[in-house]
Design a protein around this nucleic acid. Structure first.
Lengths: 83, 83
DNA sequence: TAAAATTATCCGCCAGAGCGCATATTGCGA
DNA sequence: TCGCAATATGCGCTCTGGCGGATAATTTTA
């Protein structure tokens, strides 16, 4: 893991991957996170700009968490552009 | 760095530390992030549940970023509970 | 300690997220 | 190909975050 999450879209796809890895449906995740299936759908697709607590709830339900890290590694050029 | 960010309050204090380390005022950070000083204040104090894009904007302005990581380290027992 | 800067609050307003409820749409297995 | 599960949308509603615009309250510095 340890995925980079700079945009709602990235966050959404990370969440989706984590959910599928657990073989959960959106409804199951929604229930665990105290949200609606429709909300999960929108979060995963990064369509709407979610609220922070919504994302935190989803992450917690997936046993994930945010970490805050420095952005510029090389402090000049990003060498680690793994792909 | 690489701080844990499970709650709005934690996120807020991390942001505040990063801002002070750069010796910026809330107004300066607000300007860079395209927000208001009042908003920065609330974010740092974790008073309101910010929107995701607000936090992302602040982090970007501070050259920080979110990373998503697994919550349970030891996947059974957390050995690395450094403290 | 007075002045200046920084930070914390307040008001009214507006946009949008998430809700309930419901229904398309899509995907997939039998 | 049919049928069901899973996912994506839609509508009206409520709630609240962030805004502009200020102004307290607190901290810093001269």
């Amino acid at each position: 893991m340890k995925e980079l999450a700079r945009t709602p879209r990235q966050i959404g796809s990370i969440i989706q991957r984590a959910r599928k890895k657990r073989r959960w449906s959106q409804s199951q995740l929604a229930e665990r996170a105290g949200l609606r299936q429709a909300t999960i759908s929108q979060v995963e697709n990064g369509e709407k700009l979610a609220k922070l607590d919504t994302i935190l709830a989803v992450l917690a339900a997936l046993d994930l968490e945010f970490r805050i890290d420095e952005r510029t590694k090389g402090h000049g050029q990003d060498i680690e552009e793994l792909f």
